[in-house]
């Protein structure tokens, strides 16, 4: 039918992946800060801090990556996280005590609460066919409102000591914070499920072409419900971890969380149009804002610049994704650099 072309080599495939290109950006940022303020920036202690701050977002990022790969979105995670934390805190206060028994009860309650919200999202998206943006915007408000009703707007600050000392500020091994260790477990499991299992394969297929997925007999509705439930359940995990870290339900503290996580996932190369994405990319996408924030503070630049920089990176990342998709639709290669160069040269000629 056509001439046999040599199969794409592994190295070219890696270089073409957006996550890899973003990783280079991250490394560049890191090197710049290391050169400017190496003594204070490139230290174990400081990296520990960065990892600790990114850990909870990373757990949320795993769920969000799955959701966005199905061409969906989950705006509710910040609120669901708060709600779950409140439920967990309430249960632990009711139980009383500072030991593991109480802590595990709180963990279970929090995860169950998150899972329940995720199921609500999933059923409304898959069965009622309401756009995910609307569904999760609705549950964003509902979860936060209910959290405030339950607490009457006053943060709960009673958290078992063992949670604070072992999870919030403990170490998993060596100098690795427990929170980062837990996040790492979720990232690895999430990555393995996404890239090696049938569940992951179907997640990509549904995001790529839902109708085709239905026609080959995939249970699309059930799969979407599962994906939103995962996102909600992970928000529950994040809720209880946040409680362990800050020893407060921080009801007002998560209003930007959803957007930060979405930005990280998208910066990491997951396409909002579905069908494309990696957990690895999400991790890199999370560390760019985290390292920028940390580095700006150390270097003495107003940390507000971080928001400006992340916004710009986000727009560039989506622009690159657009170019890639346009190139793929023309049946061409997806080398973004040459595409950009091509643009420049044609505009010069004009």
């Amino acid at each position: 039918m056509s001439v046999q072309a040599p199969p794409t080599s592994i190295t070219t495939r890696i270089v073409r992946v957006q996550a890899f290109q973003i990783l280079l950006v991250l490394i560049a940022i890191w090197v710049v800060f290391a050169i400017l303020e190496g003594d204070r920036f490139a230290t174990v202690g400081n990296m520990r801090l960065v990892a600790q701050n990114a850990a909870i977002l990373a757990i949320l990022g795993v769920g969000m990556t799955f959701v966005i790969i199905t061409a969906g979105i989950d705006l509710s995670i910040g609120s669901v996280m708060v709600f779950s934390g409140v439920i967990g805190a309430k249960v632990m206060v009711a139980q009383g005590g500072d030991g593991w028994g109480t802590a595990w009860l709180g963990i279970a309650a929090s995860v169950a609460a998150g899972l329940a919200w995720g199921l609500v999202n999933g059923v409304l998206v898959a069965k009622a066919k309401i756009p995910p943006l609307i569904v999760t915007l609705g549950t964003l408000g509902m979860a936060l409102g209910l959290a405030q009703i339950i607490t009457k707007g006053v943060d709960i600050r009673e958290v078992p000591l063992v949670m604070q000392s072992k999870i919030g500020y403990g170490n998993a091994f060596g100098d690795v914070p427990m929170l980062a260790g837990i996040a790492l477990v979720f990232l690895v499991v999430g990555g393995v499920v996404l890239h090696l299992t049938r569940f992951g394969r179907h997640t990509y297929a549904i995001g790529s072409n839902e109708e085709a997925a239905r026609r080959v007999g995939l249970k699309v509705d059930r799969h979407l419900i599962a994906v939103y439930a995962i996102s909600g359940g992970l928000a529950g995990v994040a809720g209880i971890l946040s409680l362990a870290q800050f020893a407060t339900t921080a009801i007002a503290g998560q209003s930007q969380t959803n957007l930060n996580v979405i930005a990280a996932v998208v910066i990491g190369g997951t396409s909002l149009f579905g069908g494309v994405g990696t957990i690895f990319g999400t991790v890199v996408g999370l560390f760019i804002p985290a390292v920028l924030q940390n580095g700006f503070i150390i270097v003495g630049i107003q940390p507000f610049w971080q928001q400006v920089a992340v916004g710009a990176v986000l727009i560039v990342a989506v622009y690159v994704d657009q170019l890639r998709r346009a190139a793929a639709q023309r049946g061409g290669r997806t080398n973004v650099l040459s595409r950009l160069r091509g643009r420049e040269s044609t505009s010069n000629e004009e």
Binding site: Y204, S208, A212, L218
Partner: peptide
């Protein structure tokens, strides 16, 4: 009815993956 983001093998076995 192909999934454009998946490779030919994944499309071939979509819904009938060999475990």
């Amino acid at each position: 009815a192909l999934a454009p983001h998946l490779d030919p093998v994944a499309n071939m076995f979509l819904g009938r993956e060999v475990m």
